[in-house]
Design a protein around this nucleic acid. Structure first.
Lengths: 144, 144
DNA sequence: TAGATTAGACAGTGACACTGACTAACGTCA
DNA sequence: TGACGTTAGTCAGTGTCACTGTCTAATCTA
């Protein structure tokens, strides 16, 4: 198993490396009050706001869990809830200015790490990787 | 972000798909008392047994957490602890027969899923994916 | 043999994630 | 239009996971 790990595990290793780099960088520049689980929900919020139920579905957690995480994000000022004009039952989770700033920082880290990978793999392999993963997504992401 | 998700997220999606398929399959054939966190530790156990500290390092959790998970795996009969002949302080975590049976089932699911992916991607792309991920591992896995 | 290191356990705490039960708003259809 | 099923979200309670800090016993080193 160490000789040739399965592809699932091989996918996980770089994913985890990126995730933890993003989080430690965020913490080091002042966003130390955000956790992994919060980030996973946060990154699914669209530019015009997203409903709690949709966030829960995409992050594959229950509505209750998503609500709990959004509570925390709201308390620390990264998001706020506003009524959904289209549906009186629903509310939209929107990113605040603080949230947008954090998002920008995170995007920078992601870009930097991707370029490190490209350095190591070569741009051709990197492009092929991206394309292959997009294809794989078709059969592994129920929300694509 | 939905138009072109970052590579980190793209890596995560198939990984999660495989992980959850393995777990649900295990549960459906009688191994319903194993959790995700336990599985992550379990799959790092070598054929001759592995020390708790090594498991903790590879799974990137603390010794305490690893010990907690091994406790559970021991209680449900997947592993047992035996003294390490080479070091009186240490004990080796070994896979039991029940554990080996579960491991075989899991390996079957992984193989089936990989072949699904190969069907979808074509064998050439699949081989390239595997090779690229192995290269990426060099710079993203501290325990490679 | 004294001192530093290492393997592992115990206690306590906080973060997630779940099920189940509930309210309120929406949509439909007779 | 009003009863009925559905959907959005919350509240309460529970179990799992992962952490820090502290401790012991065995091992290694000088």
């Amino acid at each position: 198993m160490d000789a040739s790990p399965n592809v699932g595990l091989l996918l996980f290793l770089p994913y985890r490396a990126m995730e933890s780099r993003v989080l430690t960088t965020l913490a080091s520049v002042g966003y130390s009050d955000i956790t992994l689980a919060q980030a996973r929900v946060f990154q699914r919020i669209g530019p015009d706001g997203t409903r709690l139920t949709d966030l829960a579905e995409q992050a594959q957690v229950t509505k209750q869990t998503a609500g709990f995480l959004v509570d925390q994000l709201e308390r620390t000022g990264y998001v706020r809830r506003v009524p959904d004009p289209a549906d009186g039952r629903a509310r939209l989770v929107r990113i605040t200015e603080r949230g947008a700033a954090a998002q920008e920082t995170a995007a920078g880290v992601v870009a930097a790490m991707e370029s490190e990978w490209e350095q190591h793999l070569g741009s051709r392999r990197m492009a092929a990787l991206r394309e292959t993963l997009l294809r794989l997504r078709e059969i592994t992401d129920p929300y694509a």
